[in-house]
Simulated assay, not measured.
Amino acid sequence: MNRTRRDRDEEGRARSARPRDGLGRPLPYGEAGVERQPEGVVRTPGETVREAQRLLDAGMPFHAHEVFEDAWKSGPEEERELWRGLAQLAVGLTHAARGNTAGGARLLLRGADRIGAYAKGPHGIDVDGLVAWARALAGRLDGLVDVVDPAAEAPTLVG
């Protein structure tokens, strides 16, 4: 019986060591990929927003999602849904850029609903602008058969 050994991190958790492209899709072993975001990085909210914006502007929403994921896992309880919603917006854009427009639209709307509860826009985050962006992009994705350019569609996080 020939079993494929799974890649594991130091704690024994499954981690894929396969290289990935800019949208987080696995590439064959041996191919050059985009450097992955380190996991579990604790950043200030400002650092999180700046790093995520840099990645979004570079057309790498999957990687921005990982930055937001770190914030929701390490941040204060009262902000977890904000960071989780922002991660959903980034994943929604990722799906749209990969050609999964229906899934992308669903995630964009789910993320917009989640962050909408933060009307005051903590940390300078333009919640109203992001909700409007997500709803507009989700509406444009309905019935779209082409992929979207993630850099061209990148939202502005701070208003």
Score class of each variant (00 low, 15 high):
86 L>S: 02
17 A>M: 09
25 R>S: 05
38 P>Q: 15
33 G>Y: 06
67 V>G: 04
21 D>S: 06
117 A>D: 15
13 R>N: 14
100 N>D: 15
52 A>D: 07
33 G>C: 10
59 G>R: 00
84 R>S: 10
49 V>K: 00
20 R>G: 11
43 R>G: 07
65 H>I: 15
14 A>P: 15
64 A>W: 04
45 P>C: 10
43 R>S: 08
104 G>K: 03
96 A>D: 08
58 A>T: 01
83 W>S: 13
100 N>Y: 08
112 A>K: 08
48 T>W: 12
42 V>T: 02
107 L>Q: 05
10 E>L: 05
119 A>R: 14
106 R>H: 10
100 N>W: 06
82 L>K: 04
69 E>G: 12
38 P>E: 15
30 G>M: 07
37 Q>C: 09
42 V>W: 10
20 R>Q: 14
108 L>H: 13
20 R>D: 12
123 H>M: 03
78 E>A: 11
100 N>L: 04
54 R>D: 13
59 G>C: 02
105 A>H: 02
96 A>E: 06
49 V>H: 02
55 L>E: 12
64 A>P: 07
14 A>M: 03
117 A>I: 04
51 E>W: 11
36 R>L: 13
88 Q>C: 13
105 A>V: 05
125 I>E: 10
16 S>I: 07
118 Y>R: 01
46 G>H: 13
47 E>C: 03
11 E>R: 00
70 D>W: 04
61 P>F: 11
118 Y>F: 14
49 V>D: 02
119 A>C: 04
56 L>S: 06
87 A>G: 15
25 R>C: 00
92 G>I: 03
75 G>T: 07
11 E>A: 12
122 P>S: 10
52 A>C: 14
127 V>N: 10
45 P>F: 11
94 T>W: 05
71 A>K: 06
77 E>L: 10
99 G>L: 02
113 D>L: 13
37 Q>R: 12
53 Q>I: 02
107 L>V: 06
100 N>E: 13
68 F>M: 11
86 L>N: 01
70 D>C: 01
61 P>E: 15
40 G>F: 07
53 Q>Y: 01
60 M>V: 05
72 W>H: 11
50 R>S: 14
10 E>Y: 04
79 E>W: 09
123 H>Y: 15
11 E>G: 01
25 R>H: 09
101 T>F: 04
111 G>Y: 09
49 V>M: 03
12 G>D: 03
109 L>G: 03
66 E>M: 08
89 L>C: 12
54 R>H: 10
35 E>Q: 08
104 G>D: 05
60 M>H: 08
127 V>W: 10
93 L>W: 05
14 A>R: 06
57 D>F: 00
16 S>V: 02
98 R>M: 05
114 R>A: 14
114 R>K: 15
12 G>N: 07
21 D>R: 12
82 L>Y: 04
45 P>G: 08
34 V>K: 00
62 F>L: 05
82 L>S: 06
